[in-house]
Amino acid sequence: MKVRFILNNREVEVDVDPREILLDTLRYRFGLKSVKRGCERGECGTCTVLINDKPVYSCMVLTVQVEGQRITTVEGLVNDDLFKKIIVSFAEKGAIQCGFCTPGFILTAYALYRIKDKPSIEDILKALEGNLCRCTGYKKIVDALTSIRS
């Protein structure tokens, strides 16, 4: 089945079986390896992508469902100012260890800062509920994100 959508600001078309999930399409057809395969059941957050600017788990979306939608991964944000601010804060605060959860956290944080430029700590914790990190213990991630509140 043919599916057309906007991927990182570029119009793309793929021909997929209806059972293919967005996570596999992004990794295998487009080589977007920032989109990590974790639990594959919506519990870890490392496969987070943005659909029309909202964070969702790409393991729980069929590729045929994104017809006409706008998908964003970190590869599509490398020239974005807000994105740069967030990754610099992660680096400066040591909010990264193994890095496996990082793209997911960055995208969720990016989505949050797009709708709120001065989120409260509670807003930040609430937004990040669905991204698990098994190394840093969240403290440094939250430190990074509070450091950039304008």
Partner: peptide, 9 residues
Amino acid sequence: MASWQIRNR
């Protein structure tokens, strides 16, 4: 319920 990513869908 669940998380932001899940509540969005």
